[in-house]
Simulated assay, not measured.
Amino acid sequence: MTVTIGIKALNEERHIAAALESAIAAVKPLGGEVVLADSGSSDRTLAIARTYDAVRIVQLANFDERCCGAGAQLAFQAARMPYFYLLDGDMVLDPAFLAKGLAFLEAHQSHAAVGGRIREVETANLEFAVRAAEAEKRAIPGVVEVDRLDCGGLYRSAAIQTVGYFADRNLHAFEEFELGSRLLAAGWKLARIDVPAVNHHGLTLGNGALLWRRLRTGYAGAPGEVVRAAIGRAHFRVVICRFGHLRHGLAVMLWWGLVGTSLLLGSGGVTLTLLIAPLLFLWWRRRQLKRALYSYLNWNIVAIGLVQGLLRRRQPPERPLAMCSLKDAGP
């Protein structure tokens, strides 16, 4: 028994069957287990999962605690194997990745985790279209050292124990970056290898609806949550130096300060230039006006979220989440 694949899910009835089947197929030749960590689904996610004998199901006891960090931590809490792969309920795991990932970690004892190539399947939304375009630019020449494993990865459970917990239960996003920061600060390494890992079926909401959802659900406040979680901790330096959303948020705040100052001084030309310049820069970088407009709005939401997250109350991340066992593996 080697690997636990922990699948975190909340209302994933569209994709959960494919996710579970890919996980079951991946662990079958290696020995291991598949755990579904549910955060309180109200659709058919659990009903579908119960039809798979090989799947163990646990659920968050207090649905008020659900967020991205809590879902990931719940999956790890239920894991029993020396290696752990985190998979989202809207992902399909490539059957060949686990063997390649395990071989890499066995050969590189200083690495806490390894990931592979991520393919974004849904690109109608600008968010995921940009992600797909960025992924194409970042070719992986064999092995690349990274500071996070977005969209999941294979972790050495013993390495996680050295940093206390897998995911910060308070985070509404960026739980992989926060975990990577703690691992790097503790002396571990992370890597991506040139092997397909998952196909990701992202949200299909409209662009405006996605931004509004992030504000409504608390996702937008995640940058501030990550910074607050690092204050006074060993990984604070890593967060300050490597967290791009922090830089973006601070830059937007400075920009709005300059816009306000120019308005107070009555400098209409300067104000207009300040308002247009970031959009022109993003247009040049994104190559499309609609992508530039989306990034323009998103960066402002990041700045708002930075403040929101810094002010949110926190629960001790080391404290285990209360969970219920809904189904054991087997008939």
Score class of each variant (00 low, 15 high):
156 R>F: 02
188 W>A: 09
221 G>Q: 04
226 V>P: 13
160 I>H: 02
200 H>N: 05
178 E>L: 10
186 A>E: 06
227 V>C: 08
182 R>V: 03
198 V>K: 03
210 L>M: 14
207 N>F: 07
220 A>T: 00
197 A>E: 15
175 E>R: 02
206 G>V: 07
216 R>C: 14
182 R>S: 02
173 A>H: 08
190 L>P: 09
160 I>G: 03
167 A>S: 12
237 R>A: 15
160 I>M: 09
204 T>N: 13
217 T>H: 08
229 A>T: 01
195 V>I: 12
235 H>I: 07
238 V>K: 07
218 G>M: 06
204 T>H: 11
210 L>A: 15
181 S>T: 06
164 G>V: 01
182 R>F: 02
191 A>W: 03
173 A>L: 03
208 G>R: 04
237 R>M: 00
238 V>P: 07
202 G>W: 11
161 Q>R: 06
181 S>N: 09
156 R>M: 02
193 I>P: 09
185 A>N: 10
190 L>D: 08
162 T>Q: 10
238 V>H: 13
156 R>K: 03
233 R>W: 10
217 T>I: 02
187 G>I: 01
177 F>C: 05
197 A>S: 14
233 R>G: 12
216 R>V: 14
215 L>M: 14
200 H>K: 01
207 N>M: 12
175 E>T: 06
224 G>K: 00
218 G>S: 08
215 L>E: 13
175 E>C: 11
216 R>Y: 15
161 Q>S: 03
160 I>N: 02
218 G>D: 02
200 H>G: 09
207 N>D: 15
163 V>Y: 13
218 G>P: 08
208 G>F: 01
215 L>N: 12
201 H>W: 15
221 G>L: 06
222 A>G: 10
168 D>M: 04
223 P>N: 04
158 A>E: 14
222 A>W: 12
212 W>E: 15
241 C>G: 10
184 L>M: 09
224 G>W: 00
215 L>T: 07
217 T>K: 10
197 A>K: 06
193 I>K: 03
196 P>G: 06
220 A>W: 05
157 S>H: 05
190 L>T: 03
181 S>P: 03
223 P>S: 07
220 A>Q: 01
236 F>C: 10
209 A>W: 09
180 G>F: 03
191 A>V: 01
201 H>S: 13
175 E>M: 04
213 R>D: 11
179 L>G: 00
238 V>N: 08
197 A>N: 11
172 H>E: 10
223 P>L: 06
166 F>L: 04
196 P>V: 01
223 P>D: 04
